[in-house]
Structure formats: structure tokens, C-alpha cells
Design a protein around this nucleic acid. Structure first.
Lengths: 352, 352
DNA sequence: GTTAGCACTCATTTGTTTTGAGTGCTAACA
DNA sequence: TGTTAGCACTCAAAACAAATGAGTGCTAAC
């Protein structure tokens, strides 16, 4: 069977309606609401076809139809295709978002060193605006350079190492050393670190490590310090994920079922699990990615849709923003929003 | 009416039973289960009295009784009173907890600089063990001393300040300066900082600030740096609260009602709100504090009980551990657990 | 190809009955 | 005087039974 234009229009109408109401939609509704001048009977025939083709389904015999994952997928793809031609609500949205972001910017300009906090703020704002749950990851894939390393003595046998990465993530670590270290040695060590380590990525650092350790094999202290730096940097280069608006899921009855809600919240707490929504970074076409229902890699989100977008900042830092909501989320709005925030995120982060 | 010994025993039996089942308990059950050789009729009479006195209540006419907040309170107080004489399950519990904590210790010994992470781990473990939701705060009331301050140049006009507090919380901040700063000036600044700032608490620092700024009034840079340090330290001295096992609330049907669950989770996300469970620090009698039902300062927890204990570490660091669960939580176990973890927490933190 | 009409389905709502756990009260008992 | 057996009573919850109505599929006519 062929999906002709009329069938598609009907499918679209069904989905649009379902997005709003969350209730199965019947032929009569479509016949009246849509601008196609067709009787309910005709619609009915078409809907039967659409069901046969797998785009919609009846929850039970005498109910209206609701979209299947396949139906959503078709709809979403079509939205994306015509997105660029649209201007619709964009103006209003942009204005709103600009205000919001200005607020974040102001409030957090002074805290830019704590990248997590900014992410947190963005996640929350975004969740507030969209009424969905959000997640933001930073630094997908690592590969950032070390900008600055410094070793200082905090107590007699206690050293502090501070590392600043180029994406302004700062890590520090206190550790004990067994031998005593003179001030000179510390100074020398610092100088050496800054000449050998600065500018390297984690991977490069790892390679460098092997070499350095071979050359200075006999210096256990140096070895120890380098190991700790490596460990710390690797840690800093980890993907960080923060979430916002977790409780927004309670706004959608279909997710309120206590079992579903519990699993969802558990999944949202488990940052490791979330990273599967990020890892398969597409070649940076900057595109937006949809996981509808069963498509998602996180099982407990099978009743949700997840929309992700990658952002890429000027200094090579990149990450992913995700929006998690019911399958009947307002995809258009979400796409707009994501596109938008992606652009502005750049400003925000560049500022520091 | 007087609450004689028999009445109390019956009340206790009712509560014990309800803690386990979560169902209203009738006179017949008590008559059979308890070791008092009394018929259900007699129990019934006593229960009628207990209800009149406000310790138990009938959810509806033909149902058994459930404890009121007042009933729980009586029960809890009595547990506390005889706690010291008991040894009951303690041995088994201690063993279990020792294992758990050993694991945390091992895993996190190397991360002790990130106090939050350790707290997080403890919270999670505790939640796992008890099946309730947990929260841990650190550094109630502030008043910690600054152990170490260091200023370094990251880029031409970008400085990094690192501050280590005596409780090993580390804070850092990157900030821009307008004027150029020579290496010497930086060195001098650092030396000055470490002589004037180290050893002060936030409050003392604030007072010091005023003085310093008067003396060196003309040095805008110094003023700027000091302000930033102050800001950062105040931030570091903030109460930090982490939670664990949020989703445990779904284990108790009476909390699963979507409205209650939503409000609870929202409350748990709102760390500021949680601090009201902490702020009224009792004169450090190290006692355990119970909030039963409506007694809690957090409205959305009116269907829960919250048990908190303060811990106090050797170096003057202190905080609060809280356990949040249904009103019918296993109070005895919770008390044991809290007493226990409080002792061990000391070890854990001292290690760093 | 479209539509009106009709019989049919079935989740949901509403009402009714049954069941049973639990009570309060009274009268008898120790 | 405190305890208990017995009985009538209450009421939530479970089970059952229409009634409702939104929505369908199919057929026959336009």
C-alpha cells in the first residue's frame, strides 16, 4: 500500500491531536477538526489503512487511534525536513529564551569556574521552559588540553595539585607523600610540569608518561606525582552529566504510573546509564537526534521520547543537551528550543 | 484517663504490627500475636481507650487501628529511653556496616579531596542498607578555618585562586584582572595572603577584610582579590547536602501516590529546603532527633518520618545525617544504624 | 471515490449485592 | 470489679451487573 498525501495528512492530524490531548483520537474528531472536507467514514477507511501500515494503532477495539513509534518517527522526520522553511513561533520563543539566558548569564558569570553549576542552571531553566526533563553533558569524548598545572604544599607531607583544563574545568587533589620535599624541589617540579605537561591532552599525557617514567625511572616521587596528575586529569576529562526538572515527568499521566516513574527517576540518577544517549556522537553535522519509544538505548525510557542535540563551542569543547518527555511531546517546540539554546550556549561559555 | 502499663503494651503491639504490615491492625490480631493472654474483647476495650487518648485512630468505622503521630512519638521516645540497655541485633548490624564502610573507604580513600563524592557514597550505601532515603550535610554552621590559599596566573589576565579549608574542602575560582601583574607582585601577594588569611574563619576573614582594605586602601587589585577569596570561602563554608536512595520511597505503597511522591522528590531536590531539617542544631548532645509526620518542618514530608543525627569529627567538622522514610519505618533499626555510622564516619574522614 | 446508515464492540461509568474484618455494647462470669 | 462470650451493626472492598457511548467495520447507495 502507498502512503499518499491524504493519508499522510490524516496521520499528521491524528498525531497533532494526540500530542495535545493524550487521548486516542477517533475519525469523527479528525473529520471535524482538520480542514479536509471529508466525512468520518472516509477518514475511517484511511485510518484502517494507516493502521495496516503500522503508523497508528487502536489501544482496544472500540477506541480511537494513537500513533505507534513508527508513526511518530515519520512525523518527526517530516518536521525536521521542513523545519528550515518555518518561522512560526520562533520569534516569541527566541525572545523568551533570551531573557532566561540573560538571567543565567548574569547570575553565573561569576561562577564560571564551576562548569557543573552553569550546566545545572541551564538544565533547570530549560526544564522549566519546556516542562520536560532535561540533561546536559559536557566534554563528550574528551580530548581537551591541559592549560595549567600547579603543585603546592599544604602541609608537611601533603601536596595539592591543581589542574586547569582548556575548557575551564578545574580539578584538584590532595595527596600524601612519604618523603620530604624541599621548596626548591617543589619549584623545580612545578617548572618541569608546566613545560612537559601543559598543552597535552589526556591521551598525549598518557603516552608522555611512559616516556618520562623511563627517562626519570629512579625518581619515585616524580612518578607518583605524574600518576596522580594523570588520574586527576582523566577524571576531569570524564563526561559530566547533569539533569534538570526530573519531577516534570509527573506532569504527564502516562508516565505517572508508579513503576514507570520509579524506573525513570532511577535512570535519571544513574548518570552512567544516561551516557548511552550521548556516546554515539554523529559526525558533527550538528543535527538533532530523536529516540522515540523503543528506539532509546535506555530501557526504562521506552515510554518516552528523547531528543538530543550536540553543541560545539568555539574552543573545541562540546557536549550534548537532551530533552526527555512523553512520546507525545511537542516535538516542534523542542526542536526550536534546542536549536536555539545551542546557539546561545556558545556565548555563555565563551564568556569566561 | 491514665496510660497504664497494659495499655502501653497494647499500643506497642499495635505499632509493631503496623510497622511490618502497613495495614490497620484489629483487636483479634493483637489478642493472638501478643503474649498477653487477653481476649479480643478486652483488647477492644483498651483500644477504644487508646483511641480516646489520641494514640491510635481508625481510618474508617469498621477497620483496625493505626498509630497517630502522637502514638509514634510515644513509641519512639520509649525506644530511645531503653536503647542503651539493648544489644539485640546490634552485633549483626555492626558487622554488616563495617564491611560496607570498608568498601567505601577503599574506593574513596583516593578521592578524599572531593568531600562531596564521599558524602555521596555514604548516602548511597546508607540508603541501600536501610531501604530508606538518606541525606547528609557537611559543615553545619561553618566556622572552619582556612588552611591554605594560593594565587596563580593561568593566562595573562586570568588568575586562579585555590583555597583549602581545614575540613579539606577545596574551592577554586578563576577570575580576570584588568591590570597586568608581575611575577614578583604575585609572589608577594601570595606571601601576604598566607600570613594574613591562613588560619582565619570566614567570620574572622570578614572582619580582617575591613581592616586590610582600610590599610591598603589604594590597591584596587588587592581589594579585588580579597573580595574574591571572601566570596569563595563563604561559598565553601556553605552547608552542602547530598541525598541518596531517592527512589526508595517507591518501596512504600503509602508514599507511591503520585502526588505525594512528586512532592517528596521535589523536596529532596531542593537542598535549600532540606536545610531546615538541619539548622536547629541542638546543643551537641549528639542525640538523635525524630520528626514524625506533621512534626517535620518540610511540609511535603508530612507523610514521612525523618530521623537525623549529628556527627562531629575530630577536627571540628560536623554535619547531619538524615533518614527519610514512611512513618512506619523501622525506628529501632534506624537508630542503631545512625549511631553506628556516626562513629565510623569519624574514621573515614580522619583518614585524609 | 465518497458517504450515510447501521450493527457491533468494548472500556468506562454507575449501581447493586455480597463478603468479611472489625467494632461497640450488653450480659454473664470469675 | 475486671474479663469475656456473643451478637447486632458498620462499612470498605470485592464481585457482579447493567447502562452508556465513543468508535469501529461493513454495506449499499450516491
Amino acid at each position: 500500500m502507498e502512503l499518499d498525501d491524504r493519508k499522510f495528512k490524516i496521520l499528521e492530524a491524528v498525531i497533532r491531536n494526540y500530542l495535545q490531548t493524550g487521548e486516542p483520537v477517533g475519525s469523527r474528531t479528525i473529520s471535524k477538526d482538520s480542514d479536509m472536507a471529508l466525512s468520518s467514514a472516509t477518514i475511517r477507511n484511511e485510518m484502517a489503512d494507516l493502521e495496516e501500515m503500522g503508523y497508528i494503532i487502536q489501544p482496544h477495539t472500540s477506541a480511537g487511534r494513537i500513533p505507534t513509534d513508527k508513526g511518530y518517527r515519520l512525523y518527526v522526520d517530516s518536521i525536521l525536513r521542513q523545519k528550515e522553511h518555518e518561522i512560526s513561533r520562533r520569534d516569541a520563543l527566541i525572545k523568551k529564551r533570551e531573557n532566561e539566558l540573560a538571567k543565567i548569564k548574569e547570575e553565573y558569570a561569576s561562577k564560571m569556574d564551576r562548569v557543573e553549576e552553569v550546566m545545572q542552571a541551564v538544565a533547570r531553566t530549560l526544564a522549566n521552559d519546556t516542562n520536560y526533563t532535561t540533561m546536559i553533558s559536557s566534554s563528550v569524548g574528551g580530548g581537551h588540553k591541559i592549560k595549567f598545572v600547579q603543585l603546592s604544599r599544604v602541609e608537611q607531607h601533603k601536596l595539592l595539585v591543581v589542574i586547569v583544563m582548556e575548557n575551564n574545568i578545574i580539578r584538584n587533589k590532595v595527596f600524601m607523600i612519604s618523603e620530604t620535599l624541599s621548596d626548591e624541589s617543589l619549584l623545580k617540579l612545578n617548572m618541569m610540569l608546566n613545560t612537559t605537561v601543559t598543552g597535552l591532552t589526556v591521551e598525549e599525557l598518557e603516552r608522555q608518561l611512559v616516556r618520562l617514567e623511563r627517562e626519570n625511572g629512579s625518581q619515585p616521587l616524580l612518578r607518583e606525582v605524574l600518576d596522580i596528575i594523570f588520574e586527576t586529569v582523566r577524571n576531569a576529562d570524564d563526561v559530566q552529566i547533569v539533569t534538570g526538572g526530573t519531577t516534570n515527568i509527573f506532569k504527564y499521566p502516562e508516565l505517572c504510573v508508579s513503576e514507570i516513574a520509579r524506573d525513570l527517576i532511577t535512570a535519571l540518577e544513574d548518570k552512567k546509564g544516561l551516557s548511552s544517549l550521548i556516546s554515539p556522537v554523529s559526525p558533527d553535522d550538528g543535527s538533532i537526534r530523536f529516540y522515540i519509544g523503543e528506539e532509546t538505548p535506555v530501557k526504562s525510557m521506552k515510554d518516552c521520547s528523547v531528543v538530543t542535540a550536540t553543541y560545539e563551542l568555539s574552543d573545541g569543547v562540546s557536549g550534548t543537551i537532551g530533552i526527555i518527555g512523553p512520546k507525545r511531546m511537542d516535538y516542534e517546540m523542542v526542536v526550536e528550543t534546542l536549536n536555539n539554546i545551542r546557539m546561545r550556549l556558545d556565548d555563555l561559555f565563551k564568556k569566561s
